Simulated assay, not measured.
Amino acid sequence: MTDIVVVGSLNVDVVVPLHELPAPGQTVLGAADHRRTGGGKGANQAVAAARLGRRVAMVGAVGIDADGDWLLGLIAAEGVATESVLRAPRPTGQAIVLVTADGDSTIAVSSGANMWLAPEHLAPLRDLLGSARAVLLQQEVDAAVVAEAVRLAEGLVVLNPAPARPVDPATLARVDVLVPNRGELAALAGAPPTDAGVDGLAAMARSLGTRGPVVVTLGGDGALVVTTDRQWLVPAEQVDAVDATGAGDTFCAALADALLDGAAIDEAARWASRAAAVTVTRPGAMAAAPRRAEVPTAA
């Protein structure tokens, strides 16, 4: 049985190191040579879960091009099953990642094959999705694909609603664990971008109608775990950040990993925070995901 099926995006990331992020209309010179790496939130989460020792299958699409060949080889080498990644008559997705020395990043994505993927492509994968212990999703594919994958899933459903966009209430009602950041939470709740404190974030989380907890990632401030009757803050691990690009993806994969082991949601969030903390100390997204032995045990 597959532990985790990831339904989501696969991209080629072109990472450009900068001294500072450009303002609108500004051109800045790179701080070092650019590098080409594997990416896409779906592929990042699949590789992160595989590195933690999970049996992982990827569902998505790449182009009929050299980039698609390269990406499939890259994630297959990490142990991710790629038989359910389709080849599309559109180019493989590309992401331009601008990252500063302190780990701050801005990302622009050309979706390509990721947005070609359609709900009908999931019909032959009904057994795969239904038998998986967990289905892990993001929002770099069409909303209808996310909704259909959630409908077909019979195990744990974990949704990382990134990038921010509305999610149908019927889909949210079938989500077991929702993992937004502050901005994504506000967008889902129909609220303006907010600096709300813990109580405000918890109120927004409870308004969404998920059938399980909401774990709000707060970057350097840690993560807020919200259930129907409790809320608690999981502090971030203190590390020297190099690149925060893949931290959220590692967090989601590690959260699902811990939940499959039977961890309580607060324990799972602590494990995910420790895994994400390792990621930010390394350059890249997919390449920075830690293996299980590299994640510190609880103090």
Rank of each mutant, 00 (worst) to 15 (best):
G200R: 11
T281L: 12
G8R: 09
D257Q: 06
D102P: 05
R133Y: 03
A46T: 03
L185I: 01
G79P: 05
A244I: 01
Q139A: 06
G63Y: 12
R126Y: 12
A288Y: 04
E20I: 02
V239M: 00
G155L: 06
P296A: 15
A264M: 12
V234C: 13
A50G: 03
R206Y: 12
G219W: 01
V157Y: 08
V278T: 07
N181D: 10
A31L: 02
T82D: 00
A31Q: 01
P119S: 11
A134N: 03
V5F: 09
T37V: 13
A113I: 11
G63C: 13
D67N: 09
V146M: 12
L259W: 00
L128K: 15
A258Q: 09
N160E: 06
T2Q: 02
A101S: 11
A189K: 14
R165K: 14
T37Q: 13
L185E: 00
N181A: 09
V14D: 10
W271M: 08
F251D: 13
A76N: 13
F251I: 13
A173T: 03
A196C: 06
Q238V: 08
A247I: 08
S131W: 02
V97N: 05
A276Y: 07
L21V: 03
G38F: 15
A61R: 10
D249R: 12
A223N: 12
V5S: 04
V234Y: 03
D221K: 06
A50R: 03
P24K: 12
C252Y: 05
V216E: 03
R51Y: 01
H19V: 02
V167M: 07
L260I: 14
L86V: 04
G73P: 01
A50Y: 03
A143S: 15
L10E: 01
G79M: 14
A81D: 06
G284V: 02
G39R: 01
A293D: 12
V16S: 08
G30S: 08
I265C: 04
A244F: 02
D261M: 09
A149G: 07
A241F: 01
R133E: 09
Q26W: 02
R165P: 09
V177I: 14
T27A: 02
V85S: 07
A189Q: 10
D142K: 05
H34R: 14
A264N: 07
D229A: 13
A143Y: 15
A144L: 08
